[in-house]
Nucleic acid binder design. Structure first.
Lengths: 247, 247
DNA sequence: GGACCTCCTGTGGTCTAACCACACTGTAGG
DNA sequence: CCTACAGTGTGGTTAGACCACAGGAGGTCC
């Protein structure tokens, strides 16, 4: 049946054969989100490979955010297909940042690009804006520490990105944010006056949201770009870039 | 030493411990691109884990484009650190497209966004433009079949993306392109007259390159967007989107 | 009858130990 | 001097065993 023509896999390592099989099952629709892979031992027997190779393939899929493995029995057990592109892109970017082959400045620049676009494309009626508004109210509370504030900030920006309705852009935004999260947290220690910065950020957030709700995408994009670049500039990241859209 | 505080890894699977160790080595600069990981057996002994777990971690890093494993001995043997973000992002996106949770239309839209930006940001003096020019000459040759043409087309667009000098955007562009490559090839069969389309594409390529060389980023961005969207529209992909930059 | 407890089953997680194919390295032989 | 070949270290693969976990099917006790 399925993959006899790859049986002579002189060029293919065994776990890649398993990956091909699973990817084919996904493409053909025999497996879809929410579905379960056969048990590791079963799959190994079916594909005539060792359980080790099956496990290596599953590890990769797990790292890619395509499956989730759970022990025990019941609904959360077994290897079930999910879809979390952000996880995959995020850890990949984070690792490559660690190798220092992806400059943080490039990531920030890309973030500005994606977020500006999302802001200009977001529909004023997008339901995600409700969530964004609630987040702003939470951020207005007094007594938030830096980490709590930043966590809400991340969710606010992701909500705006989601409002544009492009799954790829949303996933990339999330992954960019994840990959530099640790970095961004460190930057706050460079700020001369956190309270002042936080107030300014909150005001800018409100302006951005208002612009989107007012269907003024161009202004929203400008505000977002200035918002992000201003923050990194204040925190001391030498931003080589300029405003990406409508300079 | 390195990670004794994670020794009680009740929450952490063994291969993740190995991943953490390697990521830390990368972050601290003790490992960098071109360097080699300890041999699998050695690493297993050092970290007090089984070789199986070490191998699972290495499989993940390999899938992420962070290392390359080679058998035998000599310069190409062993597990050596590389940096190929495109591979990781590409296979991740491809898999998620297979799960049908990433609409192809969103990928195309994102591609337009990234490429337009790259075209508007590309420096007229960028050395990548030389390569792009050479590719155009190759594409002008007669007797190219569809696949050869598309392969050159991919390289041309990637060269333009590289000319913007943002590693993250370049990697994302490459991965987007890879994830829908099969799809794009299928689309050509929808075209009423391939020769006519190819001629038009070549002419548009020349216009784009000329605009960049003439330091007219805005025009280059417009041309790129029209170029890509025109192709997919002609090939029958319902593009829900409009021009992203300067509509 | 109902609540509880125990064993059973199937899942992924980990480990050990062995073998293979490969590519270079050094040496012995021509 | 060159060739042929055994040696060595690498990742690739496999088999088999054991563990922890979580639910389900029974039983047992009140």
């Amino acid at each position: 049946m399925w993959l006899d023509h790859i049986k002579y896999h002189g060029l293919m390592r065994t776990h890649q054969l398993v990956l091909s099989w699973i990817e084919a099952e996904l493409s053909e629709g025999r497996l879809s989100v929410g579905g379960r892979l056969p048990a590791e031992r079963t799959l190994a027997e079916q594909l005539k490979v060792s359980r080790t190779s099956v496990r290596e393939a599953i590890r990769i899929l797990e790292a890619m955010g395509v499956v989730r493995a759970g022990v025990g029995s019941g609904p959360d057990a077994g290897t079930v297909v999910i879809s979390d592109p952000t996880a995959a892109l995020g850890s990949a970017l984070r690792l490559h940042v660690a190798t220092q082959h992806l400059p943080v400045a490039d990531i920030v620049e890309t973030r500005v690009l994606l977020e500006s676009w999302a802001a200009s494309r977001a529909s004023p009626e997008a339901p995600e804006l409700e969530a964004a508004g609630s987040l702003l109210e939470e951020m207005a509370a007094v007594g938030l520490d830096v980490d709590e504030f930043l966590a809400l900030d991340v969710r606010f920006h992701l909500a705006l990105a989601d409002a544009a309705g492009n799954a790829v852009v949303s996933a990339m935004m999330g992954s960019l944010r994840e990959s530099i999260q640790r970095y961004a947290a460190q930057l706050t220690s460079n700020l001369p006056d956190w309270e002042a910065t936080a107030s300014r950020l909150k005001a800018e957030h409100r302006e951005i949201l208002a612009a989107i709700r007012n269907d003024d995408g161009d202004r929203a994009a400008q505000l977002v770009a200035a918002h992000i670049e201003g923050y990194y500039r204040e925190a001391g990241l030498a931003s080589g870039g300029t405003v990406p859209i409508r300079p």
